[in-house]
């Protein structure tokens, strides 16, 4: 039984550098086209079959991009590996931890289970798009005020999920916040303070 998936899903340093360069060139990028995925990898052997890829236009933190993605690329990998937005974290890569939480069309979702190819015309907001310039979002400030993290790995996902929770109006009590934030795990165990941070932001609202 073959258990090894073919190469191509993970990305090496070379491609990351390549893409970073492309992004840098295109402060632009709004109009330009960015190619992401195995088919764009210059070092790929010439004989390799082209990997099924699709062109998709998506808005990330207010910036419109057109990218050609290997169909297997998750939204999380698009953000981290191709757009250099490494705030969203890869914890479990299976929809079980919430570290990759971002907003798609205003709804919180798991970036790891979202295929980038399915995001035509979608609006994505990541942790990088939450602050207004140097001014933190009240929920970001609340995480600092309430000391709601230790290692910080889950924090971007917690904050994006918290934004969803606030928007959905599930902040009526600490119990309600706990239940509606349960899709985000924190291995440092900062749950009590995370709940307080969301409560503080809900009051600010």
């Amino acid at each position: 039984m073959s258990t090894e998936p073919p190469a191509g899903e993970s990305t090496g340093l070379t491609r990351r550098t390549f893409v970073a360069t492309t992004v840098a060139v295109g402060g632009v990028v709004a109009a330009g086209e960015l190619t992401a995925g195995a088919s764009a990898f210059a070092a790929a052997p010439a004989t390799a079959e082209p990997v099924p890829s699709t062109r998709v236009s998506v808005t990330v933190n207010g910036r419109q991009l057109t990218v050609t993605v290997d169909n297997r690329t998750s939204l999380l990998d698009l953000l981290r590996e191709h757009l250099g937005l490494t705030g969203s974290k890869k914890g479990c890569n299976a929809g079980a931890c919430g570290a990759c939480t971002v907003l798609v069309d205003g709804r919180r979702v798991n970036g790891c289970l979202t295929l980038a190819v399915r995001l035509e015309s979608a609006e994505v907001t990541t942790i990088e798009g939450v602050a207004n310039g140097d001014r933190l979002h009240p929920l970001q400030q609340a995480f600092i005020d309430r000391d709601a993290f230790q290692c910080g790995y889950c924090t971007p996902g917690q904050i994006m999920s918290g934004l969803g929770c606030l928007r959905e109006g599930h902040t009526g009590s600490a119990e309600e916040i706990r239940e509606w934030m349960s899709g985000n795990l924190c291995r440092c165990g900062c749950y009590v303070k995370i709940v307080r941070a969301v409560e503080q932001a809900a009051r600010w609202k």
Binding site: G95, T101, R108, S161, C165, M181, G183
Partner: peptide, 8 residues
Amino acid sequence: ASAQLRNM
């Protein structure tokens, strides 16, 4: 599931 998964 979770709020995120129920949104999807």
